[in-house]
Amino acid sequence: MPGALAAIADPAVRAAYREWLLRIADDELVIGHRHSEWTGFGPDIESDVAMSSIAQEELGHGRAWYEQIAADDGGDADRLAFGRAPDEYRHAALLEQENGGWEYSMIRLMLYEAFEIGRLRLVAASGHEPVAGLAQTLSREERYHGLFADTWLTRLAGAAPGGPERIQAALDRAWPDALGLFESTAADEVLQRAGVLQSSPSAEREAWVATVRPVLERYGLAVPSGAGAREGGRRGVHTAAFEPLLAQLTEVWKSDPEARW
């Protein structure tokens, strides 16, 4: 089945949309990888099981987006996920950071899911099938991920000795990386001008801050002020956390990329 890209006649727009879909796929792959590192090590058995489900769903979403791109490239999802050089990945820094404590993973989950819901809404509104329909389907799962993070953060902030301080520290660490989710490149302008996207990264960022601020304040947290966005991810410039992640992710697959594993 041809993906959404084939229907776009203008090669510049098509290339920009490919770039944009790659961001989604890479974000989901990288966060799915990090979440799956909790499998076996959650704070209790129930959360361990829940986090494994979230990981599988993110990896599954990543695969669905890679398949959309591969449908037009003539490649396959695994080759896109495992076969690229580090600077060809387009995820934001937030997703590649090490898990650290449970509080960091929950804050990151909350910030990312709020972003992802907004992004999927944009794709759903693009009118380009099949990706618009795909975005609607995936939103339903993402919503539960956000609820999971909210349940945990409410408890950690509300009942843990020293909880608010720990979560605030996690938030301070995650915030600049989270702002980096909205990094804008030439692709954003092209897509907006072509009418594929109905919003800009800066408008999306404003809407996101308006969504997460009251939630964070409900936990008793202060939204970090004056911290700039850590950008680069959308252009393939990653932090020190990515190289070891990628090396591990691709270790077996790259030992023989032509083999069937």
Binding site: L29, G32, H33, S36, E37, T39, G40, G42, I45, E46, D48, V49, S52, S53, A55, Q56, L59, G60, G62, R63, Y66, A77, D78, A81, F82, Q248, L249, E251, V252, W253, W261
Partner: peptide, 29 residues
């Protein structure tokens, strides 16, 4: 087995292994 989740070769293998280990943890519960 969980040691191989981060290194599973391919998206389907990675998801399946995560699900498999998840089953074992669920059995523990």
């Amino acid at each position: 087995e969980r040691e191989w989740i981060p290194r599973a070769p391919g998206l389907a293998r990675k998801m399946a292994l995560t699900a498999k280990v998840q089953d074992e943890v669920g059995h523990g519960m």
